[in-house]
Amino acid sequence: MKRTRPARGTLRFIVAAGGLVAAAACGGRTPEAGETGGAVADEAVRAEIERVTRRWEAALIAGAPDDAVADVFTPDAVRLPSGEPAVRGHEAIARALAGSVPLREARFTIEDIEVDGDLAFANGTYRVRGPDDVELGGKFLEVWKRLETGWRIHRVMWD
């Protein structure tokens, strides 16, 4: 498939969609009795974040990412789009995503996750394809935070 550079407006739509990696809330996990945490806890966190990521891809394909913001981000989350001002908090993030066009494809591949208490640091690559078959890919870095309601994105940046 030939990769083309989209027009500025199209690029903004795709980047806005591609920079987010999560959807509905999922419950946090505490170690079981006898568990020391470590690799077992890290694997459980990764599994939860991966499940949320698959749900987020579905929200992007459905064209409704703005409806999922409260279930995806911490209340004081910050999105850091490349070349644009930071977007802070639920309301601003939802406004930034309002009117997103459904994507034909959205795939986020987490390469590494490191867990430190109630924070997790994830990085990987993404590939999204718009309705006009314009494709965009890049890499992302996320900080996830465990809230009472589950793991949510606290900070995200991408290129």
Rank of each mutant, 00 (worst) to 15 (best):
E135I: 02
W56H: 08
V128I: 11
S82G: 11
R95L: 14
K2P: 09
R46A: 02
A120V: 14
M1V: 13
V72S: 01
G34W: 12
D67M: 12
D118E: 15
D116E: 13
R127W: 11
A16L: 09
A122L: 06
A33S: 15
R129T: 05
A98I: 11
R5L: 15
T74V: 12
V52Y: 00
E43V: 13
R104Q: 11
L119N: 06
T109D: 05
A24D: 13
E142P: 00
V52C: 01
R12K: 06
V15A: 04
A120Y: 07
A25Q: 06
E105Q: 14
E32V: 14
V45E: 02
D133N: 06
W144D: 01
T53W: 00
V15E: 02
A94F: 14
E114R: 08
D66Q: 11
R152I: 10
E84R: 08
D133A: 06
D159V: 10
G63W: 07
A77I: 10
A44Y: 14
P102C: 06
L136Y: 04
L103Y: 03
P85S: 09
L20I: 09
M157G: 04
A120E: 10
T10R: 03
D66A: 08
D118A: 13
A62L: 11
G27Y: 10
R8F: 08
A77N: 05
D112N: 14
G89Q: 08
G130H: 06
I110E: 04
E148N: 15
G99C: 11
E32S: 10
R51W: 05
L103T: 03
M1R: 12
F140R: 00
R29G: 04
R155F: 00
R29I: 13
D66F: 09
A59I: 10
E114K: 09
R127H: 10
V72G: 01
P31K: 07
A33I: 15
E35P: 05
P31L: 12
T125G: 05
A23C: 15
R46T: 04
A25K: 03
L103W: 04
G9H: 09
A16W: 03
N123P: 03
K139T: 07
V40H: 15
T30Y: 12
A122I: 04
E105P: 07
G38N: 15
R29W: 11
D132P: 06
R55P: 09
S82E: 13
L103Q: 02
K2V: 14
N123R: 00
A70I: 14
P31G: 08
T36R: 11
L11E: 04
